[in-house]
């Protein structure tokens, strides 16, 4: 069984973003680290149309007792990890509550409506204000910008996994992360992912 406790049991985590940002991979990494520790992990995902600019969401349920519904009940998220800032708000609308926490990447991905000027994309100041209102605690991380510095914007997802580990609500440790990465990725990609994870951890301090 697990070596550290969950902040809540079951713990409901939502990882959200836009198709192509590595949402599914992030949820699998977190899920595998916790499954390796003996937890029951259920992940519900929406993909298929996801590569094509749509909003995507992974629901993770971590429990010491049982497999659960792959959809989290409305208003019951403990944590929202958003690869795209406006997607955090979209998720909170349905799954938020006064005690929810959130880790948000600051890099916008504009929808077709915003690109064409028909819809307005909110300012980062407004986004931070609203996120503050709707959460008990909110962290904002320049994950994509940092990942670009590491050589690949896709590493933003792993940075957020690092940040999630640093927040300390789930028993996610560096060794568990390394094991999962080593198992699921080619050897040449392990170190760069470890670096991204560390940067994510550091971003919370």
């Amino acid at each position: 069984m697990a070596n550290k406790a969950l902040a809540a049991d079951p713990y409901n985590l939502i990882i959200t973003g836009v198709g192509g940002q590595g949402n599914v991979l992030a949820s699998r990494i977190v899920g595998n680290i916790l499954s390796d520790q003996g937890y029951y992990v259920t992940i519900g995902e929406t993909f298929g149309a996801s590569q094509r600019g749509g909003a995507v969401m992974s629901h993770l349920r971590i429990s010491s007792a049982a497999i659960l519904s792959p959809q989290i009940p409305k208003g019951r998220a403990h944590m929202v990890v958003a690869l795209e800032p406006t997607e955090a708000l979209r998720v909170l609308k349905d799954y938020g509550n006064a005690r929810v926490k959130a880790i948000t990447n600051t890099r916008p991905i504009y929808s077709v409506g915003v690109i064409s000027g028909e819809l307005k994309y909110p300012s980062m100041d407004d986004l931070k204000l609203w996120m503050g209102k709707l959460t008990q605690a909110a962290w904002f991380i320049d994950a994509t910008d940092e990942a670009v510095k590491l050589g690949n914007p896709i590493l933003g997802n792993v940075m957020l996994v690092g940040a999630l580990a640093a927040v300390g609500e789930l028993p996610l440790d560096k060794n568990g992360f390394r094991e999962v990465i080593a198992r699921t990725m080619s050897a040449d990609k392990v170190e760069i992912n470890m670096t991204a994870f560390d940067r994510g951890v550091a971003s919370i301090r």
């Binding site: 094509r52 997607e87 979209r90 609308k93 929808s111 077709v112």
Partner: peptide, 14 residues
Amino acid sequence: CAFFGAPHRELAFC
């Protein structure tokens, strides 16, 4: 907040 903060994301070609 979501009405102002989360503009609709229509499906689009990549």
